[in-house]
Simulated scan of single mutants.
Amino acid sequence: MQVAIKKLFLVMPFLFGIGFIAPLIAQLMAVWGWQAPFGLERIVFGLLIGGAWGLYATIRGRWI
């Protein structure tokens, strides 16, 4: 069980990026009336940004 928890925490920044940041971006775009570029849906655009940012945080070990 300890090994499973350690593996989960290794990818936690990525999961946070797609599970929290992506919907937050999509909701903020909806509130502000912005459209996603390239004809994408807002949530798809949020997933691209949140997933990329979470992957970056997972690889580098920090968000900034």
Results as ranks from 00 to 15, higher is better:
F16C: 02
A30W: 08
L15N: 06
L10M: 06
W34L: 15
Q35T: 13
G17C: 06
F20A: 12
A26W: 00
F38V: 09
L10R: 10
A22P: 07
W32Q: 15
P13I: 02
M12P: 00
K6T: 10
P13D: 04
L24G: 07
I21P: 09
Q35C: 02
F14N: 04
A22M: 06
L15F: 08
I25R: 01
L8Q: 03
L28V: 11
F14P: 01
L28W: 10
K7R: 10
P37V: 13
I21R: 06
A22F: 01
G33S: 11
V31R: 15
K6N: 09
W34G: 04
P37H: 14
I18N: 07
L10T: 04
M29A: 09
G33H: 14
F38G: 06
A22I: 06
G33N: 11
P37G: 12
K7M: 07
G17N: 03
M29Q: 04
I21S: 10
W32C: 11
K6D: 14
G19M: 12
Q27E: 14
L28Q: 12
K6F: 00
F16S: 07
V31S: 14
L15V: 14
W32L: 15
I18K: 03
W34K: 11
L10P: 00
F20P: 02
V11S: 04
Q35I: 03
Q35G: 14
F20L: 13
V11R: 00
V11W: 07
A26N: 04
M12Y: 04
A30T: 14
V31Q: 15
L8E: 01
L15D: 08
I18A: 10
K7E: 05
A26D: 04
M29K: 09
A26H: 02
W32E: 15
F20N: 05
F16E: 01
K6Y: 01
L24P: 00
L28R: 08
W34Q: 13
L24C: 09
Q27N: 14
I25E: 06
A22E: 07
L24S: 14
L8D: 00
P37E: 10
Q35W: 01
G19I: 07
I21T: 14
W32R: 13
F38N: 12
P13G: 05
P13T: 01
W34N: 10
